[in-house]
């Protein structure tokens, strides 16, 4: 097993996430360019130009290269599970120098910055298990401006799903131009406080334009997209038709007394990249 080579693969994964947007996001932005006018159109135009320039020059599209966040699915038959965390940590340090990334991890008490994008509990890694012997790593670098607009609502179950919808719409209107709209909004409903937030963030992994499998939930996603876009906040909060590119919902069963709603907001730079590591150590970044 060539661990150095796997590290190279993870660095490439981070670079891809930071410098190239997935086609589903680009297509949604192009669609927005087609329907916007005036100032709103100038904003989408700048975004599209920026995406193009970042890809061509291999530079991060946004100076906020985010908190390095990974979702890892480990095939239960993969033989080197104990090495994965160390490899990801090393790759983040290398990527910080090589790409480069902005040193974004600050100790909340001392203000100390390791300058390599690692620190206590960071990079933030979510581990999960799947069948087989392959490992899948998704990088989702998360910017601060959009993260600051996250919300947790511990709603009263009596307000029902209508109350959940109103909460999401109201919070996104309050956020205005701060999270760099047009955004992608992830909504986690149910579970407890932490699970609702986690599901909200995890739902951001779903490609833009993909609806939930459950038809009722898919219809609510569509309703929320429509209602938030009707607010007129528009690109960068300067007015327009596109405030969100998409809304994704995931759910968990809830306690009878609780109705937690977690909102995770992703800016237009909905950065995602995925890689697979095979059992023999070979890898591909997709």
């Amino acid at each position: 097993m060539d661990y150095e080579d796997i590290k190279k693969g993870i660095v490439q994964l981070i670079k891809k996430a930071e410098t190239e947007l997935p086609t589903d996001v680009i297509n949604a932005l192009k669609k927005s360019y087609g329907i916007e006018e005036g100032i709103a159109k100038t904003q989408i135009e700048a975004i599209l130009k920026n995406i193009d320039l970042a890809k061509k020059s291999g530079r991060p599209m946004c100076q906020d290269t985010g908190i390095q966040t990974f979702f890892v699915e480990i095939g239960v038959d993969f033989q080197h599970i104990n090495k994965l965390k160390g490899l990801i940590l090393d790759a983040v340090k290398i990527a910080t120098m090589k790409i480069p990334l902005r040193p974004n991890t600050v100790d909340p008490f001392t203000g100390e910055n390791h300058k390599d994008n690692t620190g206590d509990n960071i990079p933030y890694i979510t581990w999960d298990f799947v069948e087989g012997s392959d490992v899948y790593i998704t990088a989702l670098p998360k910017g601060g401006g959009s993260e600051n607009m996250s919300k947790l609502g511990m709603l009263k179950p009596g307000v029902g799903i209508e109350g959940v919808k109103d909460f999401v719409v109201e919070e996104m209107i309050k956020a205005g131009g701060n999270p760099c709209p047009p955004t992608v909004v992830g909504v986690g409903i149910g579970g407890g406080a932490d699970l609702a937030m986690k599901l909200g963030k995890k739902s951001l992994l779903r490609p833009v334009g993909n609806r939930h499998n459950d038809k009722t939930i898919a219809a609510i996603e569509e309703e929320l997209i429509k209602r938030i876009n009707e607010s007129g906040i528009g690109p960068m909060g300067l007015g327009g038709k596109t405030t969100v590119l998409d809304v994704h919902i995931e759910k968990a069963h809830r306690h009878p007394a609780s109705l937690p709603v977690g909102i995770a907001v992703q800016c237009w730079a909905d950065r995602r990249a995925k890689m697979v590591i095979h059992s023999d150590g070979s890898w591909e970044v997709k």
Binding site: A46, L53, A54, R59, M61, P103, C180, P235, C267, A269
Partner: peptide, 27 residues
């Protein structure tokens, strides 16, 4: 335009100075 970091960087011709880099850090 928020997030248009590469585009903005292209319009900077020169970086004549930086102040308080050691105390405050890059950002």
């Amino acid at each position: 335009t928020g997030g248009a970091g590469a585009l903005a960087a292209d319009k900077v011709e020169e970086v004549p100075a930086v102040y308080w880099l050691d105390e405050l850090g890059m950002p």
